[in-house]
């Protein structure tokens, strides 16, 4: 569920950012995801549900120390492209991704979907003033984990929602929320 608040008169969504626990202390800033696997381009990735922030830590963010930290941040909402709860937001997002792929093909080039999203971020979203994207994917009941997200496969009624934020200035009150989780 999305939690909202006003920060300095600006409507914000509460986001959770998971990182490996650090013996050197907590982070002052979120870490930008720059890997080729970043789904929607280079940016700061947040979960809107604490539950999924924990899952991310358990699965991917405790390899070195055995623990993970969850940070909290208030994300300005006014320039976020909402593909999850806005019909227009979803429809136009879908059209934009498809038309970009078609245009690239018309130029006799092929890119991976991750590359298309990185291109969109740099050549379109940012120049158009979009500060990030709210999106969701299908969760699953992972093998070997004590998690049941739905008992009716594949009806996952719980959306796995993330926000990618392109601009650091749109994230306020970034701070540690839960430390040294395992």
């Amino acid at each position: 569920m999305i939690e909202r608040l006003d920060y300095d008169g600006k409507p914000c969504i509460i986001g959770y950012h998971t990182q490996e626990f650090r013996y050197t202390g907590t982070l002052d800033n979120p870490i930008v995801c720059k890997t080729k696997d970043a789904w929607l381009g280079i940016g700061f990735y947040f979960w809107v549900d604490l539950e999924f922030a924990h899952y991310w830590g358990e699965d991917f963010k405790k390899d070195t120390t055995g623990y993970y930290d969850i940070y909290i941040g208030f994300i300005e909402e006014d320039k976020l492209w909402n593909t999850v709860f806005s019909e227009d937001g979803y429809n136009f997002f879908y059209k934009i991704v498809n038309e970009t792929i078609e245009q690239i093909h018309s130029l006799n080039r092929k890119l991976t979907l991750q590359e298309v999203h990185r291109l969109l971020k740099e050549k379109f979203w940012e120049p158009m003033g979009i500060s990030g994207i709210i999106y969701d994917d299908t969760p699953n009941n992972p093998k070997g984990k004590n998690r049941v997200l739905s008992e009716i496969h594949p009806l996952y009624y719980k959306k796995r929602i993330q926000i990618v934020v392109f601009e650091r200035t749109k994230i306020h009150n970034f701070d540690i929320h839960l430390e040294e989780q395992c």
Binding site: L80, W81, S86, D88, F92, I96, E99
Partner: peptide
């Protein structure tokens, strides 16, 4: 956001 307007801007840029 005005998604329709942004979509038109996107098409122009694309």
């Amino acid at each position: 956001l005005d998604y329709k307007k942004l979509y038109e801007e996107f098409q122009s840029r694309l």
